[in-house]
């Protein structure tokens, strides 16, 4: 099992605001990493840089052996656009707000990128989509449109949409924050099943119990730095830093 993600000294500012201050993270293939922390701590920005929705200011990132950007003279130097795109296809991202395409049916939400980006023939794309929908317990909704689905169903479709492209690593940006508790459980179950299949995943979440039970490694971020990291049992059960304690306590109240 090799390294899936090696992120070193990532820095990012929005104007005057330093959002990430020299963050380093690494993740083994087949492992699940949980990132917790208050809003504004920089966790989403980190995910967005790895999935190429934002540009890094400085640092080095290697995904599955391919380097996306490298720190040269204090600046993140990106590889060329073709390589950026190759690396993009190694990653998948599941959004808090699902971001399904409202004008496409559930099935087409999952087949569109397979056909347009990976150039899979329609039959193959639909076959893959249907088997993913079956896995998500949504096979009967293939012809529905997103507005006809519940939040939990939408999120499962968006997970299927990401999985259809066979990403090497899947990122979740607060996947349950827009859902009520019952629907949250149904999404967490899906992520847990993916973890059992040894899918490499990074989950930004406020679900402490889930993070503790499912992840192999956990990080607590605050103010753009990693305050504490370690085995989930350690981090959640026996946090060392005052800030971590306070944050975790605020969730168990």
């Amino acid at each position: 099992m090799g390294k899936m993600i090696e992120l070193e000294n990532l820095s990012k500012s929005f104007g005057e605001l330093e959002v990430l201050k020299s963050i380093s993270v690494s993740l083994e293939e087949g492992n699940v990493l949980s990132i917790i922390g208050p809003s504004g701590s920089g966790k989403s920005t980190m995910l967005r840089i790895i999935t190429q929705l934002e540009k890094a200011d400085d640092g080095t990132l290697t995904i599955d052996g391919s380097t996306l950007f490298e720190s040269i003279d204090g600046k993140a130097r990106y590889v060329d656009l073709v390589e950026q795109r190759n690396i993009l296809l190694k990653t998948g991202l599941v959004f808090q707000q699902f971001n399904l395409f409202p004008h496409f049916s559930v099935l087409r939400n999952i087949t569109e990128a397979q056909m347009a980006v990976l150039k899979r023939p329609r039959e193959e794309a639909e076959e893959i989509a249907m088997s993913l929908l079956k896995k998500m317990d949504l096979a009967d909704r293939a012809r529905s449109y997103p507005f006809q689905l519940s939040g939990g169903q939408k999120q499962r479709v968006s997970i299927a949409r990401a999985l259809a492209l066979n990403p090497k690593v899947l990122f979740f940006d607060e996947p349950t924050s827009a859902l009520d508790p019952e629907l949250t459980r149904e999404i967490l179950k899906v992520i847990r099943e993916l973890a059992e299949e040894k899918m490499t995943m990074v989950v930004v979440t406020h679900e402490m119990n889930f993070a503790k039970a499912t992840s192999d490694y956990a990080i607590f971020m605050d103010g753009g730095v990693i305050v504490e990291e370690g085995e989930p049992n350690e981090l959640f059960g026996n946090p060392k830093m005052e800030r971590t304690k306070k944050f975790i306590r605020s969730f168990s109240e």
């Binding site: 929705l53 795109r85 296809l89 395409f101 968006s158 990401a162 492209l165």
Partner: peptide, 10 residues
């Protein structure tokens, strides 16, 4: 989010 989803999907 529509643009972002499209970008991430390639």
């Amino acid at each position: 989010g529509q643009y972002e989803a499209a970008k991430v999907l390639g």
